[in-house]
Amino acid sequence: MSGPKPDRRAFLTARPFAHRGLHGAGVSENGMTAFDAAIAGGYGIECDVRLSRDGVAMVFHDAKLDWMTAASGPVAERGAAELESIALRDGGGVPRLSTLLDRCADGTPLLVEIKIDHGRDIAPLCAAVADALARSSAPSVAVMSFHPLAMRWFARHAPDAVRGLVVTQQDKPKWRGWIERALALALARPDFIACDIRDLPSPFAAAFRQRGLPVLTWTVRSAADRARAAAHADQIIFERVDG
């Protein structure tokens, strides 16, 4: 007789996640140096992905290159090879998601946040991420997004992917937040949520945990944040505060 089926979400709570890698002190966020530092420290990794002009999932947060590199203009207007050659502030290039997945083949937990700008078609980026995941041997990877339709895409087209909904109540009236969350949950059907630390404690997060589903929280930066997270969430997405 076979034993109980392992929980495919167990890696989500196994260790803290370094937000955009373990960056700071001259190490750029979402760069391979930051990701390698997180792996060396025994942490999981959270990253952001955007789509290159030629349809490759690239690890970068902003829609434009201006803030994190000496280049300018939209990420979406550059090819993958060109993006890899553009230096971040610490000198490393903009990584492909596939490169980071290779680094996580040892079992390092990875959260891939899919960045969708307002009005853009979600399918090309979701498909590029799904393709990278299908080609990877990394065993502990989840996708997540603020955009519920991105997670709905994965539910339909890559249902084996662990998927999460990123949520925040900041700058939203309570009634609007309640309606948005209810609709987002119905669309996304997430395996977990990633909740803004500023919103905790939250009846929404508490109800999600009562259903036996993991609640992660971002972005944890202080001892007070860690204490709040310990009481109201299952794992943290953190940044070290060292400049």
Score class of each variant (00 low, 15 high):
residue 132 A to N: 04
residue 18 A to R: 14
residue 181 R to H: 07
residue 22 L to G: 11
residue 175 W to E: 06
residue 2 S to R: 15
residue 88 L to G: 02
residue 168 T to R: 08
residue 58 M to I: 15
residue 226 R to G: 11
residue 88 L to N: 05
residue 85 S to H: 07
residue 204 F to T: 03
residue 51 L to S: 00
residue 49 V to S: 15
residue 216 L to H: 09
residue 98 S to V: 09
residue 53 R to V: 13
residue 37 A to S: 14
residue 79 G to M: 02
residue 32 M to C: 06
residue 190 P to R: 01
residue 225 D to S: 08
residue 231 A to C: 13
residue 49 V to D: 13
residue 219 T to R: 09
residue 80 A to K: 06
residue 196 D to V: 01
residue 11 F to K: 02
residue 36 D to V: 14
residue 221 R to I: 09
residue 218 W to A: 07
residue 141 V to Q: 07
residue 203 P to D: 15
residue 10 A to M: 12
residue 84 E to I: 03
residue 56 V to A: 07
residue 76 A to G: 04
residue 61 H to F: 01
residue 24 G to Y: 14
residue 31 G to L: 12
residue 28 S to I: 04
residue 43 Y to S: 09
residue 64 K to T: 12
residue 212 G to A: 12
residue 202 S to M: 05
residue 190 P to Y: 02
residue 51 L to V: 01
residue 117 D to Y: 01
residue 196 D to E: 09
residue 76 A to N: 01
residue 25 A to L: 11
residue 87 A to H: 06
residue 47 C to T: 10
residue 40 A to E: 12
residue 141 V to C: 12
residue 235 Q to L: 11
residue 115 K to G: 00
residue 3 G to F: 13
residue 110 L to F: 04
residue 72 S to D: 11
residue 169 Q to K: 08
residue 18 A to G: 15
residue 108 T to Q: 01
residue 51 L to F: 00
residue 221 R to T: 12
residue 227 A to Y: 07
residue 184 A to M: 00
residue 195 C to T: 07
residue 79 G to A: 02
residue 224 A to R: 13
residue 40 A to H: 06
residue 104 C to K: 10
residue 107 G to R: 06
residue 33 T to E: 15
residue 142 A to H: 07
residue 102 D to H: 08
residue 6 P to C: 15
residue 220 V to W: 04
residue 149 L to E: 03
residue 137 S to D: 14
residue 19 H to F: 12
residue 120 R to S: 00
residue 211 R to P: 01
residue 200 L to G: 06
residue 224 A to C: 04
residue 158 A to E: 05
residue 145 S to M: 00
residue 183 L to N: 05
residue 62 D to C: 04
residue 199 D to P: 01
residue 58 M to W: 11
residue 67 W to A: 12
residue 212 G to M: 09
residue 28 S to W: 04
residue 77 E to P: 00
residue 103 R to G: 04
residue 167 V to C: 11
residue 206 A to T: 13
residue 107 G to I: 05
residue 183 L to P: 04
residue 132 A to C: 08
residue 134 A to M: 08
residue 200 L to W: 07
residue 36 D to N: 14
residue 117 D to K: 00
residue 66 D to C: 13
residue 154 F to V: 01
residue 168 T to G: 09
residue 36 D to T: 15
residue 179 I to V: 15
